[in-house]
Amino acid sequence: MRKFFVRVVGLLSLFLVCSSLYQMGYAKYYMYRSEQSFEKQVKVKSVEVKKQEPVVKPAVKEEPLADKEVFLTFPKLKKTVSVVEGIDKKTLLKGVGHYPDTAKPNQYGMSILAGHNDTVFKNLDLLKLGDRVVVDEDNVSTTYYITGKKIVSKDYRLPITDQKKPVLVLITCYPMNMITPAPERLILTAEKSQGN
């Protein structure tokens, strides 16, 4: 009887290990597919935006994000994270990824920023309308306030629209505590106050 019990426990342990490895592999594959989907979405939408009539914007000196130190601070979460250019898998390990072809933080237009829900954007779901997001760029701080919060399907296509003011769009996987690939996305928008 004891040998039978040991054999059953051994088989169960092997099953659990194999199941865990399968789930981790599937999660990695799903994250890769999600990143590719986001990249395609931004490329398609940015082409559509470029075909529209240009919006007259104040002259802003365009500088690559890589040449600047940019940080996001979430006072409510007591967290500061760095912003890096790009959304590929390797880049997202370094910080919050800025989608190429969207406005840089603090410039006129939509600045789309993505991050993992278990690292840089952990607890992002705790933010509510009116909570602050501070962009620190070259030692200059600009305060934004959360103006929108929604949960959408992972297949949702974010419309990239021309804006006459700087708008931050923060995207992460949802639910926040999922071990397996998340089926939804949390999207927060933030804008500067009129006096800022």
Rank of each mutant, 00 (worst) to 15 (best):
Val44Glu: 07
Thr91Asp: 14
Gln52Arg: 11
Leu129Asp: 01
Asp138Ile: 11
Val49Gln: 10
Gln163Glu: 05
Ile187Asn: 07
Lys57Asp: 01
Leu158Ser: 06
Ala114Gly: 13
Asp88Val: 13
Asn117His: 08
Val8Arg: 09
Asn117Ile: 00
Gly148Val: 02
Glu48Asn: 10
Val49Gly: 07
Gly25Thr: 09
Asp125Asn: 10
Met176Asp: 08
Leu188Thr: 09
Lys78Ala: 01
Pro54Glu: 03
Glu63Leu: 13
Ala190Thr: 05
Lys192Thr: 13
Pro166Ile: 03
Lys164Arg: 06
Ser37Lys: 06
Gly25Trp: 13
Pro54Cys: 01
Arg132Cys: 01
Pro159His: 01
Thr80Ser: 04
Asp136Trp: 02
His116Cys: 11
Ala182Ile: 06
Thr147Met: 03
Thr119Ser: 10
Val140Phe: 00
Leu129His: 05
Lys104Val: 11
Glu63Ile: 00
Ser111His: 12
Asp138Gln: 03
Asn123His: 01
His98Lys: 15
Asp118Lys: 04
Ser34Ala: 12
Lys94Ala: 05
Thr142Ala: 13
Arg7Lys: 06
Pro181Ser: 13
Asp136Lys: 09
Glu48Gly: 06
Pro181His: 00
Lys104Arg: 14
Thr180Met: 14
Val70Asp: 15
Val60Trp: 13
Lys43Arg: 09
Leu77Asn: 07
Val84Met: 13
Met110Ala: 00
Val169Trp: 08
Thr80His: 00
Val55His: 06
Val42Glu: 14
Leu188Gly: 10
Leu77Phe: 14
Lys50His: 07
Phe74Glu: 03
Leu188Trp: 02
Asp67Cys: 07
Val134Asp: 15
Gly97Asp: 11
Lys94Pro: 06
Leu77Glu: 13
Leu16Arg: 04
Gly195Ser: 07
